[in-house]
Nucleic acid binder design. Sequence first.
DNA 1: CTGAAAGCGCTTACAG
DNA 2: CTGAAAGCGCTTACAG
Lengths: 340, 340
Amino acid sequence: MANRKITIRDVAALVGVHHSTVSRALNPKTKDRISPEMVRKVDKAAEKLGYFPNIAAATLKQNRSFALGVLIPDLMNPVFPPIIRGIQDTAEAKGYTVFTANTDDDEKKEQDALNIMSGRSIDGLIIATAWRNDAIVDKCIERELPFVLVNRTVDREGVNAVIVDEEFGIRATLDHLISLGHKRIAHIAGPQHSSTGYERAKAFEDYLTLKNMESGLVEHMEKFTVEEGHRAIKRLLARDNQFTAVVAASDLTALGCIDAMQELGLLCPENISVIGNNDIIFLARMNPALTTVSIPKYDMGAQAARILLGLVNGEPRDPVILRMQPRLMIRNSTSRAGAF
Amino acid sequence: MANRKITIRDVAALVGVHHSTVSRALNPKTKDRISPEMVRKVDKAAEKLGYFPNIAAATLKQNRSFALGVLIPDLMNPVFPPIIRGIQDTAEAKGYTVFTANTDDDEKKEQDALNIMSGRSIDGLIIATAWRNDAIVDKCIERELPFVLVNRTVDREGVNAVIVDEEFGIRATLDHLISLGHKRIAHIAGPQHSSTGYERAKAFEDYLTLKNMESGLVEHMEKFTVEEGHRAIKRLLARDNQFTAVVAASDLTALGCIDAMQELGLLCPENISVIGNNDIIFLARMNPALTTVSIPKYDMGAQAARILLGLVNGEPRDPVILRMQPRLMIRNSTSRAGAF
DNA sequence: CTGAAAGCGCTTACAG
DNA sequence: CTGAAAGCGCTTACAG
């Protein structure tokens, strides 16, 4: 009953040629072997019949799917939509489809997602979920699946990654706070098994040490969430409430800090200045508008997709770590120490 | 060179049976025709070899892909991530993969996306981008592609949709403003060729008329964006600045209104109360915290996926329009008229 | 309960 | 430049 799907054979029948000719005429890579007139006729017939290729068939035959996978922790975390959009726009412009899976930062879910994507014969994978020693990297290498890390990277060498110059961001952050007269600066650190959590914490301690300032005011979190930020700063304040500024490992962390401070009757920035990281949406509209390190999320996604597409199409080149430059966005959550 | 992918034939060879037996043993729907012992052996062998099915092959044979498509305007619009996550969680729990495409509210891009998804043999489509007379609905019907509308619906009957009781939301909004003593209330209306824009504007006018209040203070936008909200309220203020409250068609619209007011030296809520719609992320943290109509985004996605999965699996039932109940979230962008 | 065969719609090496 | 054939890895109607 259904209008059966149009295949290459239907187009061939209409033109009066063999279906392999239709296949060649429709494929940009082979159409130059077909007479221009034939190409024209095939195009017209395909158009008339409303033909579009069955990608499953092409995938089965070619063992490539023109699909890219993306692994993120959670789509609802505002860090990721711009990254994904950058990936999608870049990939789709080259004829690739992308699908994404949420891992909730759970290695089991990450594993399952990889298997499902492998089953769908993805041509490559972009990973925004890697821990520093994540097993998924070995799995990809073992399966010879091209992959690019984004945002977070791993400890081992020889991978492709698009990340942020975290040291630069943290130094800019600390320079800003120091110029504002802050002497005792705290850090709510992210998970140390993530490169971002680790590098930010390391840059924080190294730079303060370099400046001969106190560098031990650090409290660690399990995850980059509002709740964890909330809990961590409460722990910190329970043991030391003489600092005047806090560098949060992420924007969500910073929001959690501000919430906790509010509960304790501490004002931001009057009592404590707070700085986030990432520059997620709407920060400028918040109360207080959050000072943060802005990372080029859309562009990071686009670059990662570009590198992956190169890999997928066999352009040989050495693994590359692209370190994007972040930018300090000064807003109202930071102010002069002791100004109030 | 490569570890060639494991197929059903490799598993069959290891067990010493025909590959069709392996296929049956691995498929939950047919495994009851296979002896339990054989099922066990096959499972073990598959596990040992690290087998996972080639979905392209299954798709080609069965003409179904266990993939669902989702059409949204833009992933970076905070309305959509929760909807998509609701769809993903529901679909993945049933073994389906989902991929999404951004249309930027452009009918051409919507068309292209549909073709690509059709080429990938999606089993069904969730559409969050429909205009009231969108041609995509006819295309889906013509191709016999099961689909469910979400958030926006179309004028024609007989479709499946998960939408919001807009009239209820607008009435709650107006009741709130009226109780605050507002007499002249304006509306920044969304595109009238979208059901949400149309229904909100209609509910606004009908309810004020019912209450014997002025209902003509309306300015229309082309899109639900910050920029359009900004422009629209400026146009409105240019011809009438005696209103004390404005109902914006969306949260982004409301933010644009507040921006424009700020530029003109008008305060929210002191001079004009503003109410949004949708309750996107972080509104409670804004300055001022935005009063809005909250819609159950995640749940809408989950329900849409549930209905679509029913359709896909041939459960016969009449088309259903699910109207979800919204909830007014009163925050700080609304206050008593003339209180300042 | 299991096997053997056909076929889904493409692509591509081989001919001519 | 075009055709004929084989095959990608599954599923499933038909046998037995």
